[in-house]
Amino acid sequence: MAESKPIHVLQLYPRDMNIYGDFGNALVLQRRLQWRGYEPILHSYDPEDEFPEQVDIIIGGGGQDSGQDKIQQDLLRIGDKLHALAEDGTPMLMICGLYQLFGHSFRTREGREIKGVGLLDLRTEGTDTRLIGNVVAESKEFGEILGYENHSGQTYLGPEVQPLARVTKGEGNNARDSHEGARWKNIVGSYLHGSLLPKNPAIADFLIAQAVQNRYAETIQPQIDAAGSAQPIEELTRKARTTATRRPR
């Protein structure tokens, strides 16, 4: 029997921060880990839950302002633990609402400030303008990134983070600078739903590669083919991405 090699994937606040299908990101990580011979173990964490002892990848999704209110105090409560994991190189993917709260603060349209955990050097301002539609962005690290944005908060990066990508179709972080998302250490922040990872396996494989390197000091293979598939997985992904880029804004 082959040796079991578990990788623990933690989804933060799925009860309140998962309104655009962001759980699909967990499913992609699960399947791509299985295809490479690792055992994915999925955990969920909601306010007042016990934080898992073993965490290899952390993901989080989007939510309304009310959802951010519900999790704010608990997120601050576990902030030191998240900072320590980030410093140790734990890969993380934060989408939309949790992307905002991984920054310093989110000021709502009404002027109320929701304090963030401060892992990413960024701030978000609520506006009356909604940025919505399909997005295409170019990343030096991950190539072409595809997704769907739907947010009225506009995010501005500080000097301690780099943008994830430059937008070629859509808006991204805000309506001014053509930046989408943020990168710091092994953290990826983005406004893109859809879910993000099915359309962008390069980001999924980055998270997996970092987790496997941290846990087992192993390097993953860049290409995968699932047993029983009529076509190679990467070929199916390429066709899906080609179709997605043709969708109108």
Score class of each variant (00 low, 15 high):
residue 136 V to G: 00
residue 86 A to P: 00
residue 173 N to I: 13
residue 134 N to M: 09
residue 66 S to V: 12
residue 207 L to V: 10
residue 109 R to H: 09
residue 194 G to Y: 07
residue 37 G to V: 03
residue 135 V to G: 08
residue 55 V to L: 08
residue 45 Y to A: 01
residue 167 V to F: 03
residue 112 R to L: 06
residue 161 V to N: 07
residue 200 N to D: 03
residue 68 Q to P: 02
residue 80 D to G: 11
residue 24 G to K: 01
residue 112 R to D: 14
residue 126 G to S: 13
residue 19 I to G: 02
residue 48 E to R: 12
residue 126 G to K: 10
residue 114 I to A: 05
residue 132 I to K: 07
residue 239 K to L: 01
residue 7 I to D: 01
residue 41 I to E: 09
residue 148 Y to L: 12
residue 95 I to R: 02
residue 199 K to W: 03
residue 56 D to N: 12
residue 61 G to Y: 03
residue 106 F to E: 03
residue 225 D to I: 13
residue 153 G to W: 10
residue 16 D to G: 03
residue 42 L to K: 11
residue 78 I to V: 15
residue 33 L to K: 08
residue 42 L to N: 06
residue 139 S to M: 10
residue 129 T to G: 04
residue 57 I to A: 07
residue 191 Y to Q: 05
residue 233 I to T: 15
residue 163 P to K: 01
residue 43 H to L: 13
residue 180 E to K: 06
residue 147 G to R: 09
residue 215 R to A: 11
residue 222 P to G: 11
residue 117 V to W: 05
residue 3 E to F: 08
residue 240 A to D: 02
residue 207 L to A: 06
residue 114 I to W: 07
residue 207 L to W: 09
residue 45 Y to N: 00
residue 8 H to L: 03
residue 127 T to A: 12
residue 93 L to S: 04
residue 132 I to Q: 08
residue 69 D to E: 15
residue 133 G to H: 03
residue 84 A to L: 14
residue 35 W to N: 04
residue 102 F to E: 01
residue 4 S to M: 13
residue 129 T to N: 12
residue 135 V to H: 05
residue 86 A to S: 14
residue 147 G to Q: 03
residue 89 G to V: 09
residue 164 L to S: 05
residue 85 L to D: 02
residue 83 H to G: 00
residue 236 L to F: 00
residue 192 L to A: 08
residue 163 P to I: 06
residue 84 A to R: 14
residue 25 N to F: 03
residue 142 F to M: 08
residue 240 A to C: 01
residue 216 Y to C: 04
residue 16 D to Y: 15
residue 164 L to Y: 06
residue 74 D to E: 14
residue 140 K to P: 12
residue 122 L to G: 00
residue 208 I to C: 07
residue 170 G to T: 09
residue 187 I to S: 02
residue 133 G to N: 04
residue 216 Y to E: 04
residue 190 S to H: 11
residue 59 I to M: 10
residue 137 A to G: 08
residue 29 L to C: 02
residue 152 S to P: 01
residue 41 I to Y: 11
residue 23 F to Y: 15
residue 47 P to R: 05
residue 74 D to N: 15
residue 195 S to G: 11
residue 189 G to T: 07
residue 87 E to R: 13
residue 12 L to P: 10
residue 8 H to N: 15
residue 98 L to H: 12
residue 226 A to I: 12
residue 186 N to Q: 14
